[in-house]
Design a protein around this nucleic acid. Sequence first.
DNA 1: GTCTATAATGGGATAGAC
DNA 2: GTCTATCCCATTATAGAC
Lengths: 217, 217
Amino acid sequence: MTKPLKKNQKAKELILDAAENLFAYRGFKGTTTREITREAGVPLGLMSYYFGTKEDLYREVIERRSVEHAAAIRASLQSAAEQANGNPTAEMLIRAYFSPLVERSLRGGEGWKSYIHLLSRAANTPRNEPYVESFDKTYVPVVREFIEILKGCHPDADEEAVYWSYYFLSSSIIHILLESGSIDSMSGGKFRSTDLETILDKMATFFAAGMQRLAAA
Amino acid sequence: MTKPLKKNQKAKELILDAAENLFAYRGFKGTTTREITREAGVPLGLMSYYFGTKEDLYREVIERRSVEHAAAIRASLQSAAEQANGNPTAEMLIRAYFSPLVERSLRGGEGWKSYIHLLSRAANTPRNEPYVESFDKTYVPVVREFIEILKGCHPDADEEAVYWSYYFLSSSIIHILLESGSIDSMSGGKFRSTDLETILDKMATFFAAGMQRLAAA
DNA sequence: GTCTATAATGGGATAGAC
DNA sequence: GTCTATCCCATTATAGAC
């Protein structure tokens, strides 16, 4: 802790919680500062006082969780490598990479669940929108590390295979985390977009096989 | 043609073109009616006169191309089945399903390119937003047909394998069509998110292998 | 049919009272 | 530090002139 906790921390947290939830499910432009403060139960003026502009608030919402999340991904990858004595399979790595995220979405409480939605929304936002920059700063280095480790699974493969595999994997998970419900309605309710544990299971199998095939080509 | 072409068709088309382009790259909420009419070079009042509300305009933008696109997908699937004497592989079907889309994005002109962006944006929009309904009406039946045909590639597999495979495939393509540029920056420019032809190639190989593996499990 | 001027609303941000 | 009242601007949509 660099700063002592002040009494105003409570109002700040209420605003952050409300903003996180609303940004996640209605988007940045679909959310008004009036809604945020109403949901938080604080007067409108406090928002500007504590956070400045709406964009500043968005950045603080991200920064509240992104660093911890990125650290958890690193730890999970490390732990997978150790368990496999330095030779983890692609399937293990995919699981390790996404399980911190699935874990938090399912069992981290409403805040984390919203944050994960926000994350996938941000990944779908064009990079020239100013308010999404703060994501890249934290996550891009982790992605680079993940790709480097993935290369180790198929040392003889062209690196092209690894990049495309990562691209297919990440693009898929980005949409899945929105939990759009498309699989639910297409399958008549048999399979559910909120069932992230099953999805992670199937994903690891599926994408490891795809990667192996690309690497062999 | 049910209606004869009128002179005002020209202004209507100009508005539709501008709206398509702006909705695609800035989103529905990120686009104002003033921008649309300015870009189209027509007075603001004409928009309401021809289309009604902004949501009505959005719907007409979609309906201008969705029916033709859906028909092209059906024809492409049919043609793949015929070329393979009724036994197309998953790889062939994936290619057939997405090639009308890739074809239009790359060689259909700016309008189609924008429309494809709009399509992926809509797929990432929560289903309770009223303006995205018009997509589902046209595309959901085609998706159902595609899934049924896919089942035929692995007749012994549990249908679960087919649904998850479709889900991974579609979720991936949805993000890829946004051409976010993430693969470009991650790979230092070596691989490009706009290179849809290479991507379709890799995808067909990759996802067919994943599906085969899931079906065998 | 076409266009201008404007109404009506809601937005982000802030000045200044408490 | 906290909250209210308000500014100022941009928005969608329309009424009514041409």
